[in-house]
């Protein structure tokens, strides 16, 4: 990770490396395109080389492409942005370490956004392993970046309770019954964050982060629909397509996979200069992805140019 202590020379080298590698790829593709017009096939090893460079270069010289948030992602961002400071937001960590690479960046980005806006966050999880994932947010986001925020006043972690949708069935009407204390055994009534909150219906926003079961579907069916609470989600890419039918009526917005997380991170960086140096793992992961996708699309175009040129030549004969 690049940080403030990286010497300027290294930073300059990274910039030079990035420029050289991007120029190399662009020039190479252009050259192949011109060759294609002259009906020269591309050898597969050349394709392999391009893929390798387009993946390795952005890792070596961190390359961030500006992501413009799609409406589904923007909707979540705008919702958090528009809530008045002090609003109550619930973040549910419904994932395990296996899903973490895709969704942990979302959880961290949501936390950053809520804390910087001065919202109060309630953390919980429907996956037992979600507890450990919260610890990572605690260590990587809250402690280093928001040391002034106080546990119990600005945020609270009520942890995990077994029962899947049964848990949701209870907290839709009464939090305290399911969570008499937070994870540090502080009783419900003496937790500042819970002032004025009896059930999920008193929350301003609920965000479930995950991709399995129990997860966002249960949140929508057992809390969002019956309680009329705004719900948003961040999920792994494979489940995202199945959730679109819920948007925008039952789900105000959603982040799908690394791309969704990257869009959110880029929106966050664009709005808040204090996050300029915060880690943006999803945006970094998108670098190789974007470049590789572009290279593949370029090769599809080159392939078609070859095909069309070939047919034209045959026609002439």
């Amino acid at each position: 990770m690049m940080n403030a202590f990286t010497p300027p020379l290294a930073l300059a080298l990274v910039d030079i490396g990035r420029i050289i590698s991007l120029t190399l790829i662009a020039a190479g593709l252009l050259w192949l395109f011109i060759r294609a017009i002259k009906l020269k096939e591309v050898e597969r090893r050349v394709i392999f080389l391009f893929i390798f460079i387009s993946v390795a270069a952005p890792i070596l010289f961190p390359t961030v492409f500006k992501e413009k948030a799609t409406p589904v992602v923007k909707a979540v961002f705008d919702k958090i942005e528009s809530l008045p400071p002090g609003s109550k937001v619930l973040l549910s960590y419904d994932f395990d370490p296996a899903m973490a690479p895709e969704v942990q960046p979302m959880a961290d980005a949501f936390s950053r956004h809520c804390l910087v806006k001065g919202h109060k966050i309630i953390y919980m999880c429907l996956f037992a392993t979600g507890q450990g994932q919260f610890t990572r947010t605690m260590e990587n986001v809250i402690r280093p970046e928001f040391p002034e925020k106080i546990d119990g006043v600005d945020y609270v972690n009520i942890g995990y309770k077994a029962g899947n949708e049964g848990v949701l069935n209870v907290i839709i009407s009464d939090f305290k019954k399911m969570f008499p204390t937070d994870v540090n055994a502080v009783p419900y009534d003496s937790i500042e964050v819970f002032k004025g909150i009896r059930s999920c219906k008193d929350l301003d926003l609920i965000i479930s982060i995950g991709g399995g079961r129990p997860g966002i579907k249960e949140w929508v069916l057992f809390v969002g629909d019956p309680g009329d609470v705004p719900i948003a989600t961040g999920v792994a890419a494979v489940v995202a397509p199945q959730l679109y039918p819920y948007y925008p009526k039952q789900l105000l917005g959603l982040l799908g996979g690394v791309k969704g997380a990257a869009e959110y991170e880029s929106e966050l960086v664009a709005h808040y200069s204090r996050f300029k140096d915060s880690p943006t793992p999803a945006l970094l992961m998108m670098g190789p992805q974007t470049l590789a996708h572009i290279v593949i699309m370029a090769f599809i175009i080159i392939g078609n140019v070859l095909f069309i040129q070939g047919r034209r030549k045959e026609g002439k004969r």
């Binding site: 893929i51 993946v55 890792i59 890419a237 996979g257 690394v258 791309k259 992961m285 190789p288 992805q289 590789a292 996708h293 593949i296």
Partner: peptide, 9 residues
């Protein structure tokens, strides 16, 4: 494609 690129990453 995205998943395959992730493997190489």
């Amino acid at each position: 494609v995205m998943g395959r690129i992730s493997l190489l990453v």
